[in-house]
Design a protein around this nucleic acid. Structure first.
Lengths: 225, 225
DNA sequence: CGAGAAGTTGAAGCGTGTCAAATGCAGTGG
DNA sequence: CCACTGCATTTGACACGCTTCAACTTCTCG
């Protein structure tokens, strides 16, 4: 069902371009088929904050068309291909396919949990904890999507991206990464991230994966007929 | 319908107590009938972050029972009374009352938008911008709930609460509030907040209410039969 | 091979945190 | 009604994490 819908309307975007802009009227829901994207917000004076990352398989803002206008923008990091899912499609789903509807709720709730964890991250963690935490999160999510190796993954974010996501300056991101490298917690070079000791990185970032609710996702869905 | 459900199981809590704790299995959804509460997360070393506030009329985590365990805690600020809404109630709603179901989605989406704005707040705004922004948000939300005067509202948060919500130290919260007072942006005394010039406070906090999606809430609901 | 983007380095400044003590305030019991 | 108590707020001095600015180096890719 999802594959059928996804194949309907597919669009591709170059890296560093906008898929949707703040102020626009949201029409469709976007399913990321390929590539990395992000949600970001911007102040009048130019300060930018990346508020979340989208990885392949992620869905942007389910049911967003209930709201009148976008309060944020969505932009690509790498080349990205997305499927546009229409409102009608969702109405059809929610009545006819309860298991998929439950999966959508799961997605919505986990996204909310991630956003809360980011609030925690920015509010309480130091620069290096924050960076370690973000790297752990991305690795776990990529692994869930089947896009990671055992101890690493491809990693297209620049230090400027990391700065906008962590609320740090570019320069300090650079120094923070050096610190993590010096402690043998990461190897980050040429768009590849290797995590030689995930356990230690997790504790360096005070990372607890509970908020990702990875446990028994499949069983959960099966349990709801 | 909602009133009927809300009257079913009502519980009251003293100030500064937990309604639910991280790690527990979520059973019901809570509707705040009275008082202020908050969602918070805590690190092992004690650092605490308030990730959102609940005001009367707010609903905590719709459909949360899809997840296996709470990734955060919910605690009261003031005395609070809540109604526990069961899973069955929601299944009934979502099939039988599409307008209420849409209203629930609206609530869910706006909460997500608020969480994103908090991410922006912590990541990009300075201490005084951050504080001004938070005060604006709470005032707008209280006004929407019919709980604010024209230029002020009752305000039960302590400076320690504000510190945990803004990611600042208590001492710096104190100084930041003094700065806002000195600029005649707020009068905060004895659990009452007065905003002599909302426009100026909004611009001091770079506050744009678009993320609250206050526009035509009623019409929106009516439009969805 | 050249040019622009990404990453790195050093020095200096500032915003916010920390520590510690004083003051103000509200509720309680005698 | 006042003294007592504990919590909330305020103040000052100092320390430090992070930012800023500016220049330099290294990568990437056409």
């Amino acid at each position: 069902m999802l594959n059928r819908a996804a194949a309907q309307r597919v669009r591709t975007f170059a890296p560093r371009t906008d898929i949707a802009r703040e102020g626009e009227k949201p029409k469709d829901v976007h399913l990321i088929l390929n590539g990395w994207a992000c949600r970001y917000k911007q102040l009048e004076d130019g300060r930018r904050q990346i508020v979340s990352f989208f990885l392949p398989g992620d869905i942007c803002d389910l049911n967003i068309f209930i709201l009148r206008e976008m309060d944020h923008s969505i932009g690509t990091i790498t080349p990205v291909s997305i499927a546009d899912l229409s409102r009608e499609f969702f109405d059809e789903i929610s009545t006819g396919y309860p298991r998929i509807a439950t999966a959508f709720w799961w997605e919505t709730l986990v996204n909310a949990a991630i956003q809360r964890e980011w609030t925690m991250n920015l509010g309480q963690r130091t620069a290096s904890e924050r960076m370690a935490h973000l790297l752990c999160e991305l690795f776990f999510r990529l692994r869930l999507a089947g896009l990671a190796e055992d101890n690493g993954c491809s990693f297209p974010l620049t230090q400027a991206d990391l700065a906008e996501a962590t609320g740090l300056s570019k320069v300090h991101v650079n120094r923070t990464l050096q610190e993590l490298r010096a402690n043998n917690l990461i190897v980050l070079k040429g768009k590849m991230l290797v995590l030689p000791d995930l356990e230690r990185l997790m504790s360096a970032g005070l990372f607890n994966a509970n908020y990702l609710h990875l446990d028994r996702e499949g069983r959960q869905l099966d349990a709801n007929e």
